[in-house]
Write a protein that binds this DNA or RNA. Sequence first.
RNA 1: GCCCCCAUCGUCUAGAGGCCCAGGACAUUGGAUUCUCAGUCCAAAGACAGGGGUUCAAAUCCCCUUGGGGGUACCA
Length: 521
Amino acid sequence: MTVRTRFAPSPTGYMHIGGMRTALFNWLWARHNGGQFILRIDDTDRERNVDEALGPILHAFRWLGLDWDEGPQVGGPLGPYFQSQRGDLYREALDQLLQSGKAYRDFDPPEVTQTDRAAAEQEKRPFLNIRRALELSDAEREQYLAEGRPHVVRFLIDRAAKVSIDDHIRGHVEWDCGLIADPVICRGDGSPLYNFATVVDDAQLQITHVIRAEEHLTNTAVQALLFDALGYSRPEFAHIPFVAAPGTKEKLSKREKKLDKYRKSPQFKKLFDIADEILPRMGLSPSESLNPVMVSYYEAVGFLPEAVLNGLSRLGWSLDDKTEHMSLPFVTENFTLDRVVKGPAGLDPDKLLAYQEHWVGQLSTDEKVDRCLPFLTKAGLVQEPIDAAAVRFVSRLVDAVGERLKLFSDILRYDEYFVADDALTYDEKAFEKRLRKPSEAATLLGEFREHFAAAERFDADTLDALLHEWVGQKDVPMGKIIHALRVATTGKAVGPGMFDCLALLGKDRCLMRIDRALERI
RNA sequence: GCCCCCAUCGUCUAGAGGCCCAGGACAUUGGAUUCUCAGUCCAAAGACAGGGGUUCAAAUCCCCUUGGGGGUACCA
């Protein structure tokens, strides 16, 4: 039997990182077994513009390289793949249940059910429906129906029974049906409820493995019963732990109140700060609309799909006691459900950043340049169309920056190489410390400038030799001149190797910058 | 209230009765390298929630307690 898994997002306009992890595990299981992965859209809420709200979700899948065999944009033999277009399927299943007496029309208005519920609560016993509709005579029922009395359809639970599943991750889980209220499967307006629709869909789409977050575990009792009642064979279940907020065991949430909390949490703050710093420079609004709960954040800020995938894979799953860095093909090859962890896994920004460092390190200069360029153009540091000289320059910069480049947006930290020489801004503290305060700084820098101006070649090695030679002659400690030189030419106290920086700028720009700094002292 | 799930270093995890006075990774701290920063290398510190059993032997099995989480909707 071919393994078929699915992920069923509602078109909310963004892809949740926790949802992405669930989707990934489904994809992984399907691919590991040479099966199919299906995308089904839960768009029962018709208020929204589905196309618009689905875009970012599909984009997130594409960005990470997770393809789907059936679903939106690719179709498939068992479609449609939008719940809003599957009404006939639900109606058919509903009729079947009604006809066989496994479901019933409940004419009690919501207030009555609510009162019943409150009474049960009051008496500290589990709520069970009173099933007044079952007492109705056929004639009464006909009459209610004829007069169009509003009603819902409830699934009739056999209170004497027990249900159990053998979950791939949780093991054997059993429920006493005597404690389960009859769930509404069809609303007053005729639309199906999740628990019902998902069963019909999973059966019709021939899903073999339902892999979803553990918050659905309780729902599974009703769903398993529904599969049985409809005569479908049950899929296998795997309830994976949910992704928790950094440093907590709580489900990662997108709710605004929570986001404010995350923003202040020591572990999560780092990611929010990156967004606040980077996004405005590229003309994007900061963390309000783009935050680390959403997959698009990671793309926007310059993460590598490989890093996010690696991080997501290790969130609730591990291969063994030491393998940390894993590519998608490698994880696919080795992914099994029995190695999924049971407890909730907190998203760890530091670890994600560490994965990013690893995967960026695997890239060639050209590949890094390709990824950095969009950031530079969006920030207006490189003009479009990008010419060959610009590419060459960025390439040299990327080489000089080396392992300092972690996120691709980090390239924006080196804007001093792109601004005009007379527009360079200085780190004032560094300027003070390295140029103004040391009494000999101006003199030394001035003298070195002349030596420098005479240089015939201007590559890093030559400059290195030049400075060392000069320092030796003058008997000046290296530290006296090199920091002054750095602040004068780059405006900053830190950066790549000094000689790489100088070579990158070239002689003319260096001289201009030194002169400007000298005047400014 | 009731039902269900979960519980190893700060974090992600290894561990399916002896290989564990618990291993790895990230983070942290110290040292080395260096013109700064980043990096790299070396080192340190750091956990089986508690209590009972079972067993020659328990992080691992059972029970209880505690803690956390989820569900209990005409949400998904």
